[in-house]
């Protein structure tokens, strides 16, 4: 049975913007339910952050970390869905909306959360991202990028970070990374770095963050702030966009007035996108996270109906967003491993 919470829509859960009706998103929920598992971090009933897994329609939720003495967050499935990285810090520390990738210790576990072990000390191996084969991780530190072999824990390659400073993600083919860079005029650019040549190109130079690759590695999904008419105190709302990894063909995925859309993550089959709909900027991860959403990429460009957005995006479709529970930095695997008994 689908999680009834997932059928309520933004309006039902937060009173911000009306999307389509529950009946209209029901087919979407049915469609995605068997497509693997989503991992995300969220507050437990005891108030600490735990890593949870659930079916993509929000059903069958389970706690993967079960550690009430720690704050566990930022889960990342390996590309084969058999392993899980996350970070863990003592209970009571505040999760930072910008620095979560370097807070606490990096943990490695099986995809169902079992056999968890620390991979380093506090703050070490920051912004870890999986290699395509799940044998290495890419990390980002002030001194530069480092590729670490997980079995031996040895650094196998280092290279300058060239202005990249957060949220690097290794491409599905292992040949490049995307991340947030300050090397392209504006402070929060999305850029791609070719690992063979260390040549970087901008994907988007507006105020951007939280990039992720499409399943085929040809496109990048990212968040982009666009103050169309000076709304939200001049800061505008953050929209979900996509562009070619070479920076060409940027286009809207989804926009909403009243929410910042962050944490875009493309499904393993490339047909859907996951994100969070933050009411506040950094305040949501510091508190309870924000309701997550799931939509079809084939429906893009889409908006939550609003006169102001309709004026900016006259051709956009009315969004069909499956609203999921509150969480932070969701990721998706097609593997069934997260659901296996521990």
């Amino acid at each position: 049975m689908a999680n009834p919470f997932s059928m309520l829509g933004w309006l039902g859960c937060a009173g911000v913007a009306a999307l389509v009706s529950a009946a209209e998103v029901a087919p979407l929920a049915t469609e995605v339910r068997p497509l693997g598992w989503i991992a995300f971090s969220a507050r437990s009933p005891q108030g600490d952050w735990e890593v949870y897994a659930m079916r993509p329609d929000g059903s069958d939720r389970r706690n993967l970390t079960n550690s009430p003495d720690t704050e566990d967050f930022y889960p990342l499935f390996s590309r084969d869905g058999l392993q899980l990285l996350y970070r863990s810090m003592p209970r009571g520390q505040t999760l930072s909306g910008n620095d979560y990738g370097r807070q606490g210790r990096l943990m490695l576990a099986r995809a169902n959360g079992s056999e968890a072990k620390a991979m380093g000390g506090e703050g070490e191996l920051p912004w870890a991202s999986w290699s395509p084969d799940g044998r290495q991780i890419l990390t980002l530190q002030p001194k530069g990028f480092a590729i670490v072999d997980l079995a031996s824990k040895q650094v196998v390659r280092t290279f300058p970070r060239g202005g990249f400073y957060q949220q690097p993600t290794w491409s599905p083919d292992g040949k490049a990374l995307v991340g947030v860079s300050n090397g392209f005029n504006t402070g929060w650019s999305i850029a791609r770095l070719e690992l063979a040549t260390l040549q970087a190109n901008a994907v988007s130079v507006a105020d951007c963050c939280t990039p992720d690759w499409s399943a085929d590695g040809q496109r990048v999904v990212f968040s982009r702030r666009r103050p169309h008419a000076g709304e939200n105190g001049g800061y505008g709302w953050t929209e979900l966009w996509q562009a070619g990894a070479d920076g060409q063909g940027a286009s809207l995925v989804y926009a909403e007035v009243g929410r910042h859309l962050y944490g875009g993550h493309v499904s393993p089959d490339g047909r859907y996108v996951l994100f969070t709909g933050n009411l506040w900027e950094d305040g949501d991860p510091a508190n309870r996270g924000a309701p997550m959403g799931l939509a079809r990429l084939t429906d893009a460009p889409m908006i939550a109906e609003h006169p102001q957005l309709r004026q900016v995006y006259p051709q956009a479709k009315a969004a069909q967003v499956l609203v999921l529970p509150a969480g932070h930095e969701p990721c998706w695997t097609s593997s069934q491993a997260p659901g296996l008994p521990r």
Binding site: P142, P160, G187
Partner: peptide, 15 residues
């Protein structure tokens, strides 16, 4: 700079 600061940068002299 990279050794000392990881964050947003405004560079009006870019290029």
């Amino acid at each position: 700079l990279d050794d000392h600061y990881m964050g947003g940068l405004v560079d009006k002299y870019f290029g």
